[in-house]
């Protein structure tokens, strides 16, 4: 995040999505970032990000939980078969272990989902650069690295309705 570039600040959602539509896929806007105070679906559609890989974390976590949920009681049974009320241990009691497996599926699935959200979102990030504090309040912003305020790209950002254009760098 240490690269300098131009930050264009917008007040309105339709302005920022309009600009996103124009700059998406262009080589001279490579690496641009969009900042938003909340998760507007309009921005998600304009960004055309495709399906998030977080789902694979959830799936793998959930299946691991199912496996662990059956393995834990069965391994304990193998180590010391505990016969209670005439009910034999091991596979004979597997219906009772479905509950353990169900709970661990949810637990591992949820923990893996959180891990996916963190890894894919590149957080925790102690060195995160906050370019403009208004983007966590009520403004939107687009940051384009490696350009300056007098460039043609900056002009396009301005024409899209930016209320402010400025150069930002390593120190925000």
């Amino acid at each position: 995040m240490s690269e300098s570039g131009v930050l264009a600040v917008y007040k309105y959602l339709d302005e920022v999505t309009g600009v996103m539509g124009k700059i998406k896929g262009r080589a001279d806007f490579a690496g641009f970032e969009v900042f938003s105070p909340t998760s507007y679906h309009e921005i998600e559609h304009a960004g055309d990000f495709g399906s998030s890989p977080v789902k694979w974390f959830t799936l793998v976590g959930g299946l691991t939980g199912t496996f662990a949920g059956f393995l834990l009681p069965l391994a304990c049974d193998y180590d010391w078969p505990l016969v209670v009320g005439g009910k034999t241990a091991g596979l004979d009691s597997i219906t009772a272990y479905v509950i353990i497996a169900f709970e661990l599926t949810i637990l591992f699935g949820a923990i893996a989902t959180i891990a996916g959200m963190l890894i894919m979102g590149r957080i925790p990030n102690p060195k995160a650069t906050i370019y403009d504090v208004r983007t966590t309040d009520d403004h939107f912003a687009i940051f384009v690295p490696g350009i300056d305020e007098s460039s043609e790209q900056a002009n396009l950002l301005k024409m899209g309705g930016a209320c402010e254009i400025r150069t930002v760098g390593a120190n925000g």
Binding site: E44, S52, V54, G116
Partner: peptide, 18 residues
Amino acid sequence: GWRGTAKQWHHYEAGYGF
């Protein structure tokens, strides 16, 4: 260190749904 980038929101929304 949340920055509120569109990509962060994208993964966040997917994860929140799951």
